[in-house]
Design a protein around this nucleic acid. Structure first.
Lengths: 193, 193
DNA sequence: CGTCTATTTGAATGTACTCAAAAGCGGTGG
DNA sequence: CCACCGCTTTTGAGTACATTCAAATAGACG
């Protein structure tokens, strides 16, 4: 199993010893996926944290009118999924789906708790990880207040230049908080420049 | 110094021993504030984490056109302020200001780091705190995508029923991501029902 | 090739914004 | 105590950004 990406990610925050790496490698589950495959289904009890090893995934929820709302796109080297359901052990409202082919590492909920209890370094790692995730989320939130949809789309293209090849525009629209029709018009406007 | 609120908040997640409580009490700074007083100024190096002991505060940034954008309201028992600047030791773009009279506890940046290094329980506490803060922030973000301004205002009133007495409507409007004029119209519409 | 879904385009509509002015409100000084 | 000043809130009119509904076109996949 290839843990190098995850270990590199952790090493940005804390130094791991061999015992920690061994434990990690003993609890993680390798899970390849294909284009469009759903890895976590809404309605399930949340059993796993999801780390993207290669490719991309998206986490989204489906409302009563069967419209999907994308919470997050995650590229290789990112954590994905619905933290709420993991931390509260509740059924999740969010599904996580592969975009293109790739692979995720699944960290079972119980194993995650053991990891945190056994290894202070891992507690520290996740503290820093959540702290930074919160910072990014706050930034994204503030930006939606002060930018137009066109500016957000431009920024999205800059941030995820490869993603448009794998994911339907309607999901990008949803991620940006606009309708697919309006994204189509934005793209037309940009193309005409 | 009254640490009871903070200790109660921590106790929701972890159990503290006397050494931890003593250390906490030795590093925290009590800081009363009056209506409208600015506790953290944008442009400063971020020196403190801010815990609200009584009253309310808001954290906001001021754009080039001198418009304020409210990131967060915090009631007693909440942490406030710009985590980014604390964790990256950068000057902050956000100010934090008292609403009504009250008191905050300031946790100096360095002391916070010592706290995390010395006491695994505190590392655990902040991991859980940031994790939950991230969950709430994600929820708030998704909700802005699928609700109208009127629904968000209604929810705001339900969540912070006392806050409207202390804070100018234009700040509530900013928090909701709308203009003060439009909030005024929303309130009129609701009153007519 | 045919079917299903996604995207594009058009037209009408709605939500929220901008600009502008009036009214309200709170504090300060004469 | 009240008159004035500055700031907030309200109201009005016009506008822009984004949505909805509907239909046509394009793409993907068996």
């Amino acid at each position: 199993m290839d843990l190098s990406l995850l270990i590199a990610h952790i090493a940005e925050y804390v130094t791991l010893n061999d015992a920690e790496i061994d434990f990690l490698s003993s609890i993680l589950i390798q899970r390849p996926f294909k284009q469009g495959e759903v890895l976590i289904h809404a309605g399930e009890a949340a059993r796993y944290m999801v780390f993207v090893n290669s490719g991309h995934v998206m986490t989204y929820f489906t409302d009563d009118d069967a419209n999907d709302h994308v919470m997050q796109f995650a590229a290789a080297g990112w954590w994905a999924g619905d933290i709420y359901s993991i931390s509260h052990h509740a059924t999740t409202k969010y599904s996580t789906r592969g975009l293109g082919n790739g692979e995720v590492l699944l960290l079972p909920r119980i194993a995650h708790q053991q990891l945190l209890e056994k290894f202070p370094a891992m507690e520290r790692y996740f503290r820093m990880h959540f702290q930074n995730a919160l910072i990014r989320q706050q930034l994204r939130f503030m930006e939606t207040h002060i930018t137009t949809a066109e500016e957000r789309y431009q920024k999205f293209v800059d941030t995820y230049p490869t993603l448009e090849r794998f994911v339907a525009q309607k999901y990008i629209a949803s991620y940006l908080g606009i309708t697919p029709q309006f994204l189509s018009r934005i793209r037309k406007r940009i193309a005409e420049k």
